[in-house]
Design a protein around this nucleic acid. Structure first.
Length: 268
RNA sequence: CUUAGUAGAUUUGUC
């Protein structure tokens, strides 16, 4: 069974759901991991209906779904923004008392946030007996992605009051919240606090800073952050050139673009 | 390392 499960996962990773299914169907015996693998595979490849059918079939076969099963199913509902099935899965989760689990909780919150139901996401969060760093990050990211910067800030403050140290994921979400609300002062504070820390030299966090400063109209600061990056990937270059494009500085856009080519970064 | 959770840039506008 172990070998078959691995084979299924290999096909899933290569994006071939048909072959994964064929192996799955050919098996004389399946364990919980087999079911979880194929269900998560369906979700990853956005075959949500298929995943749910398999979920029903596994129960008919007497295999009891666990946390991993639901995380797999919810991932599909999340990427396809399928609120109907997401709520259906939530009901199953509650029925089994799995809604207190942090990973299941994050999956539910992501799904609800993606579907625009921040209230539902917040309810899931509020019911977690022991939210962890990822729970906070998921919720903050959810508010940010829905354009609700103020609630993101509020949670950011509360997570620190609760004793959690923001990590790079937290910082990127909060900086993005600063961008969309043009909260330059708050952005500066966040930036100042991470100078000298690990996050201060992270490329993804740096790109979020570039975006924050340029969206707040502070292109000089954006440029300073950009120049301080030890390695600049295509996303950082795009963020920086987009900033100049936004300020209609086509000279600088072209200059940066040429420098990017010189440094061996290929445009996409 | 048999299966599960969070983050960055760009994107021509459908009435």
């Amino acid at each position: 069974i172990l070998a078959s499960n691995t084979l299924i996962q290999t096909y899933v990773k290569s994006g071939n759901i048909e072959r994964a299914r064929r192996v799955f169907e050919s098996l004389p015996a399946r364990d919980l991991v087999t079911w979880n693998t194929i269900i998560a595979g369906c979700s990853r490849l956005e075959h949500v209906q298929e995943g749910i059918k398999l979920f029903q079939r596994m129960q008919q076969d007497g295999v009891h779904p666990d946390r991993v099963t639901f995380v797999g199913l919810l991932k599909g509902c999340c990427t396809t923004a399928d609120l109907i099935h997401g709520k259906m899965m939530h009901a199953h989760v509650v029925e089994r008392g799995l809604d207190s689990d942090v990973i299941v909780g994050s999956s539910l919150m992501s799904m609800y946030a993606r579907c625009g139901s921040l209230d539902d996401a917040q309810m899931v969060f509020d019911r977690l007996p022991a939210p962890d760093l990822l729970s906070w990050n998921t919720m903050i990211g959810g508010y940010t992605q829905r354009g609700n910067g103020l609630d993101a800030f509020d949670l950011f403050d509360r997570m620190q009051q609760a004793g959690f140290e923001p990590d790079n994921f937290t910082l990127v979400s909060v900086l993005k919240a600063c961008s969309i609300t043009a909260a330059l002062e708050r952005g500066k504070v966040v930036h100042a606090r991470m100078i000298g820390s690990e996050s201060g030299s992270d490329g993804i966090v740096g790109t979020a800073l570039i975006d924050m400063y340029s969206q707040c109209g502070s292109i000089k600061s954006a440029r300073e952050v950009f120049e301080s990056l030890t390695s600049k990937d295509i996303v950082a270059w795009t963020a920086m050139t987009a900033a100049y494009a936004h300020f209609t500085d086509s000279q600088e856009v072209v200059r940066l673009y040429q420098r990017m080519l010189q440094e061996g970064i290929r445009p996409n």
